[in-house]
Design a protein around this nucleic acid. Structure first.
Length: 461
DNA sequence: CGTGTTTGACCAGCGC
DNA sequence: GCGCTGGTCAAACACG
């Protein structure tokens, strides 16, 4: 008991000492925590400042681009009025033009070019004159396309034979003959030393051909993940530069895919949707697509030899054309996206806007990423990254379209989301890259992209 | 033996 | 109508 009493007696003083010690320790710990918190706060504040600068720059870019776009829209409106006056006497020309395909007879192509020239006024690209609004969806086009789809669904395996049959039956069906439905394609040009570009999917080679104008054989592959999968791809070396591999995807996978293959698969299906949109749906959809195309990729080419509507993602061209998507995070990359299509509407809009000088869209992000320059270059030269980049971009374009928003709205109309748009894009880049890059350096850069994405996570692209 | 590749044949569209 | 070309088929072959 005494012991207990002594203990009790001693307790207060001991406790005081302990408490004092504890308090001192707690205080020092708190101080340390405070210091750490302050440092963090300071970092956050700096980051915030940077983001503000970025945002303001993006806003400036937005304003200037919007101005450009409005100018183009006005021009195209006038051109369209002129064109409608000029060719209102020939309905078939109108429809051909609206669909924007070059698959009709030569005379009609000539007529179409003539009409496009009328619409266009002054926009030229590589000797090809293009119209601002050559794609003008109207009811007749919808009917023609729908009837084509129906004829397909009704069990006619041979669209071509049905088109032949339709020759006899009337004007509307002549449209079918002139505009056979062909699967949209996504073509990816990338530097690649291997026989094919690894895209995460399983392919079986079913044919090989020497195509005209290219000594390198073209290989034909089909997807073997599912026996019923309709997806095909063609692989061919570029005739001008043997180090460039041109991979063309066609169709949409009808089965689940591994994450590493999902990006490219998404790209092909998205492109298909996107191009379908280009031929049939509202002008606003096209406008958004074209606007983004024009403002981000200054080089748009047209390939009228391709009967299939094709989206070309060029990951091989030099960067001097100010590709802002790639340069945003990866300032020194030689990769760039050359986004084109043989839909005149797409190219024409791109061509129309391209000549203007373009302010750096994501220059703020670019500055942030300056320290990651070397890492970025390494990533950008990686074939996996290139395919992922192509996939990510195509996917985003199509998703924007599918969501009923055009690119103008998504990218620029909401000031608070502009930065997030860039960040979200980068986060999408990070996704496929992560699955293929096992290198710590790559992971570090991805982490950077993801952190950028977090900053803009309120934007749901 | 199963799977994938090679390669000549075949078919359909398109241009002349 | 004919020839050229792109795309696909399928038998033969190679490989693990």
């Amino acid at each position: 008991m005494n012991f207990k009493g002594e203990e009790r007696m001693n307790m207060p003083s001991n406790n005081d000492e302990v408490e004092e010690t504890l308090n001192t320790e707690t205080l020092s710990m708190e101080e340390a925590n405070m210091t750490r918190a302050k440092v963090k706060m300071e970092e956050v504040r700096k980051e915030n400042e940077r983001l503000k600068v970025t945002l303001s720059q993006i806003m400036e870019d937005y304003s200037s681009l919007k101005e450009q776009f409005n100018g183009i829209a006005d021009q195209s409106k006038k051109a369209r009025n002129l064109a409608s006056m000029a060719d209102s006497d020939d309905e078939s020309e109108l429809v051909c033009l609206s669909l924007g395909r070059f698959s009709g007879p030569r005379e009609e192509k000539k007529k179409m070019n003539k009409t496009i020239n009328l619409e266009n006024g002054s926009n030229k690209l590589d000797g090809i004159e293009l119209g601002l609004n050559s794609c003008r969806p109207d009811n007749s086009v919808e009917v023609s396309r729908n009837s084509l789809d129906e004829s397909k669904e009704e069990g006619s395996n041979d669209v071509r034979s049905s088109a032949k049959h339709s020759r006899i039956t009337g004007d509307e069906e002549i449209l079918q003959q002139n505009n056979p439905v062909k699967k949209p394609r996504v073509s990816v040009r990338a530097h690649c030393n291997t026989q094919t570009m690894h895209d995460g999917c399983q392919w079986r080679k079913y044919g090989q051909k020497i195509a005209k104008g290219n000594p390198c054989p073209r290989a034909y592959y089909r997807c073997t993940v599912s026996s019923s999968c309709p997806v095909r791809k063609q692989v061919q070396r570029c005739v001008d530069d043997m180090s460039i591999l041109i991979t063309t995807y066609e169709g949409t996978h009808n089965h689940p895919l591994p994450p590493s293959a999902a990006a490219m698969a998404s790209a092909t299906s998205s492109a298909a949707t996107m191009l379908s949109c280009g031929s049939t749906t509202s002008p606003s959809c096209l406008t958004g697509y074209n606007f983004s195309t024009a403002s981000n990729f200054s080089r748009a080419t047209i390939s009228s030899s391709q009967s299939h509507p094709t989206v070309i993602l060029d990951l091989t061209a030099p960067n001097h054309h100010s590709n802002r998507f790639s340069s945003a995070l990866f300032p020194t990359t030689r990769s760039s996206l050359n986004f084109s299509s043989n839909f005149p509407s797409v190219n024409s809009m791109a061509t129309a806007a391209a000549p203007h000088s373009q302010p750096p869209l994501f220059s703020g992000v670019q500055k942030q990423a300056g320290s990651d320059q070397k890492i970025a270059t390494a990533i950008a030269h990686d074939p996996s990254f290139q395919s992922a980049l192509a996939a990510a971009f195509t996917s985003i374009v199509a998703k924007n379209k599918n969501s009923g928003m055009n690119f103008q709205h998504l990218n620029f109309a909401q000031p608070s989301t502009s930065n997030g748009c860039a960040a979200s894009f980068m986060s999408r880049l990070g996704q496929p890259m992560n699955s293929q890059q096992h290198n710590l350096t790559m992971a570090a850069s991805k982490s950077r992209a993801m952190s950028l994405a977090d900053e803009g996570e309120h934007l749901n692209l």
